[in-house]
Computed example of a mutant assay.
Amino acid sequence: MNEILTVSEYLVKNAESIGDELTERILAELNSIEKNIKLEPYLINKNKNQQLIAILGDALTKPRALAEEQLVSWIKEVKEEGIADFYSFSAYIKPNVKSKSIFLEYINEVCLKLKISAENIVNINNQVSHLIDVWLVDKMYAYEGFKDQMMREHQKAINELSAPIVPIQSGVAVLPLVGAIDYIRVQHLLSYVLPTIPNMNIDVLIIDFSGILTIDEEIAQHIFAIHNVLQLLGIKVLFTGIRPNLSMVIVKAGIDFSSFQTFGSVKQAIESVKL
């Protein structure tokens, strides 16, 4: 019988027991090199290890492109779990890279047990190593996707906290802008903050720029467009805290200051209000 086919059939037939043994080896190895590592995610992945062994075994007799296609199809079907248990990318990927070496070591043991020739052991190792790399790359993408989602959620929370409408007296409220104003935060203002203003019984809105760290010309145009929108809704808009560096950005953006009421501080703006 073809030697590669022999290894393939052995892996597929014994995928469950091999997956269990590999999981135990991985857990033991990780526990020995890093005492504080969370092992729960690897226990959760035991069934996936069994499936992966069967897929790798079946892939040995297939062209690399087809084997990779089938592996990617399986990866899309299974859900990556336990990502939230890892505090950093290195903490997540380092154990997975270690798992690769354990996988390959076990495959070599199987080949030696089945008395496979050195040439075919090399061929088998190349195929398995390539497919595990594909698997690891997907894990990297999964972690990046998880972190990106977390960052979006954190940014949304920050936006909600950093752009509140603060009522200060009857009919008067302040919108304090704090930190670096970028496209995402402007979109939050336009999509979530601005639509709530007409329902708050506000006659005068003071937009305070004193807490802004940075702003570019395009963003400045968006923010000052809020002035025009609110005026159409019958709300008077006052601007405060526009420092010289922000003034330069506004001028470069081609924004006409003549139609705006500006004050040095929120206190001055409040004192100017005659309701």
Rank of each mutant, 00 (worst) to 15 (best):
I212W: 02
K13F: 01
N45S: 14
A65W: 00
S8V: 06
I53D: 00
S129K: 15
V7I: 13
M151K: 09
S258G: 09
K274P: 00
R25K: 13
V266A: 08
S117Q: 15
A142G: 06
P167H: 05
I184D: 10
E109F: 02
L11P: 00
I212P: 03
I18S: 05
L136E: 13
E40I: 07
D148L: 13
A118G: 13
N36K: 14
D58N: 12
F146W: 03
L30D: 11
I107Q: 13
S210A: 07
F239W: 13
V266F: 09
I83L: 13
N228K: 07
E81K: 04
L238P: 02
A67M: 03
S88W: 01
L175N: 12
Q149T: 09
T6N: 15
L246D: 02
Q221C: 01
I235P: 00
F103D: 04
N201G: 05
L161G: 14
D216R: 04
E16F: 09
V186F: 09
G241H: 01
S170W: 05
N14I: 03
P244K: 02
V174M: 02
S99K: 13
I83S: 02
S32F: 11
N120R: 12
K98C: 11
E3V: 10
P63W: 09
R185I: 10
I55D: 06
I219F: 10
D216F: 03
E109G: 14
V273G: 06
I116P: 07
D85M: 09
Y42H: 10
Y183R: 07
P95Q: 13
P41Y: 01
L27I: 12
G82D: 14
D182G: 05
F239A: 02
L233N: 03
S32Y: 14
Q155E: 10
K147I: 14
L131H: 08
Q51L: 06
M248Q: 15
Q127M: 15
K236T: 11
Y10C: 09
K115W: 11
W135A: 12
V72M: 15
S101A: 15
L205S: 05
E153T: 11
W74H: 10
I181N: 06
L175A: 12
V174E: 03
L52A: 14
V7C: 13
E21N: 03
I223D: 04
K76Q: 11
K100L: 15
I18V: 06
L205I: 12
R64H: 12
Q221E: 01
V134M: 11
A157N: 11
Q261S: 10
D148K: 11
D182A: 07
V251D: 12
F146R: 01
N49A: 08
E24R: 07
A91F: 04
R25C: 03
W135G: 05
G145A: 04
I255A: 04
